[in-house]
Design a protein around this nucleic acid. Structure first.
Lengths: 150, 150
DNA sequence: TATTGTTATACTCTATAACTATA
DNA sequence: TATAGTTATAGAGTATAACAATA
């Protein structure tokens, strides 16, 4: 039998295992608030800007325009965002948080804080900061910048 | 506007960003060999055992029986595994790699090696080992053990 | 009755591309 | 023609549950 390297020899294997666990736990937390992780990222992006064009959100989140439209439809249905015409360019739209959506963001942000503390709080401060720094270094070197969604 | 903690303050944010990038690059590599990451994990698990029951694979991969059935159907269609009846228990089946499937595993394993080197090779050895160790610590403390699929 | 496995249904995310309206 | 956005379609993953066959 030809050698096939042990899966667990790969750093990527452990990275995915831990990342999936953290994300799945976070997904369960925000599901209790009625949103998905993608919807949370979407709302968080809108929170800092009064209004954004779908194309700007697509760029920021590394998603296609089609994916943004579908996500926006769901958030519209939940009453968390509004869609408005752009007076200057009749092709363009702008998306904004509703009052309900805006007041939900800090609640979701608190869940993100809690999730981070649960997972990484078990490490000594020094190691936790080391991990954070190493991950940021890898993201920087690779030029990663879009908000991770899944 | 109530405060909403900065996304980038969360270690989980960077973990997910780096993990997604590593996984997506790996997905592209194995796609050139005609398989998905889930299919690769499935084949890698079968490589160490001559034959496995779908239920055993479900347990090992943290997937439901239904998901395993669907995955097995696709791998059967690609001629990479076979499904056989179990003589001892007529309800049970066993899944095994075909010759084609078995010879593809080392090729895919080499792609995993390459992907890991591309992503983590930019770190000094000491930091790379530190990252690996921190991730394993987190996985251990959380009792994580199923093969990450997505 | 409980268990093994398959099948059905539904939802999320992703990607591509066709399409509408406007520039 | 090009651009902004929506809509359609399809594939992959996940979860729940209904189902058939066997124990």
């Amino acid at each position: 039998m030809p050698p096939a390297s042990d899966l667990t020899a790969h750093t990527g294997y452990w990275l995915r295992m831990v990342s999936n666990a953290v994300s799945q736990d976070f997904a369960r937390k925000v599901a209790d608030e009625g949103v998905t992780v993608a919807e949370w990222s979407f709302m968080r992006a809108l929170y800092d800007a009064d209004a954004m064009a779908p194309s700007a959100l697509a760029e920021k989140m590394g998603m296609t325009k089609g994916a943004i439209s579908k996500l926006a439809d769901r958030l519209l249905g939940k009453g968390l965002i509004t869609r408005a015409d752009n007076p200057g360019d009749k092709r363009a739209h702008t998306l904004s948080l509703t009052g309900a959506g805006r007041s939900k963001v800090p609640i979701l942000a608190a869940l993100a804080d809690k999730n981070d503390a649960e997972y990484f709080g078990i490490l000594p401060t020094e190691e936790r900061e080391m991990l954070h720094r190493l991950l940021r270094t890898l993201a920087d070197r690779r030029g990663l910048k879009t908000i991770p969604v899944d």
